[in-house]
């Protein structure tokens, strides 16, 4: 497995077909109006193309802007300039300029995102939470239940917890619910922000296995993993964010 740090597009030979994520000249600067208009530059000039079956791991020291970059790619943060094109159906959609309903459709069908923290409506049973992305995509409720149960079982979440809302779960349990909610669907593009941070070694291995299974099926991934073992277990290449860091 390749872990070398190389510029954009260098590695195309080892992946198949056209890229499913194309980031061009992406930059992000925060402007904080309530702090005397202070300007917080994060990164600039980012170019990145990711192909099906690739897992690009964003690397760099803490605070260098990895999470910000991942969020900008997901369309959660609004970039200051540049574009992020994502494969959706048969074309590429620039989610930095697409109308809101199209961005939501890309997120619903083409691009999944595992955040660091679980954020859901309170008091909903775990199983229902995991079924939801399937139901949203028109999957039959019986099949959705089957797939959700299989996913929770794969992630070793004790069956006794399935009917409970995750609010009282441990950090690791919540994180696995979070992963299950995304991995239960086969998104062509996956963004992962520290999905294994609060997991024990055994569960980390399970997640690595799930990710590699998805990758083998052609999913393109961009992730942030501080744990070197996980990084080595999933990455097809590293992408050093430090080089795009803007001076404050």
């Amino acid at each position: 497995m390749s872990t070398q740090n190389q510029p954009v597009g260098f590695n195309e030979a080892m992946s198949n077909g056209d890229p499913v994520i194309v980031v061009e000249q992406l930059a992000k600067t925060f402007l904080l109006h309530n702090l005397n208009g202070s300007v917080v530059p994060v990164f600039t000039g980012v170019n990145l193309a990711v192909h099906p079956g690739e897992c690009v791991v964003l690397s760099g020291a803490s605070g260098v802007g990895k999470s910000t970059m991942l969020r900008a790619i997901y369309g959660n943060y609004i970039p200051s300039s540049g574009s992020v094109q994502v494969r959706h159906d048969d074309g590429l959609v620039d989610i930095t300029h697409a109308p809101p309903h199209l961005v939501l459709d890309v997120r619903r069908r083409s691009m999944g995102y595992v955040s660091q923290f679980l954020r859901v409506i309170p008091r909903i049973p775990t199983l229902d939470l995991v079924m939801e992305p399937l139901l949203e995509n028109g999957v039959d409720p019986a099949e959705a239940r089957e797939r959700a149960e299989a996913m929770l079982a794969d992630l070793n979440l004790p069956r006794t917890l399935w009917s409970l809302p995750p609010a009282t779960f441990s950090g690791g349990e919540q994180q696995r619910v979070n992963i299950a909610r995304v991995m239960v669907r086969d998104y062509p593009v996956l963004l992962l922000d520290e999905p294994t941070a609060s997991l024990d070694a055994a569960n980390r291995q399970t997640v690595i296995k799930l990710m590699n299974r998805a990758r083998a099926a052609g999913t393109a991934m961009i992730g942030i993993f501080h744990d070197e073992a996980v990084r080595d277990g999933v990455a097809t290449r590293l992408f050093d964010v430090t080089q795009f860091k803007m001076a404050a």
Binding site: F30, R71, N76, Y77, I78, P100, V103
Partner: peptide, 10 residues
């Protein structure tokens, strides 16, 4: 005016 998560997170 924008996507909910954009408006609230950024």
């Amino acid at each position: 005016h924008g996507l909910t998560d954009q408006v609230l997170d950024d």
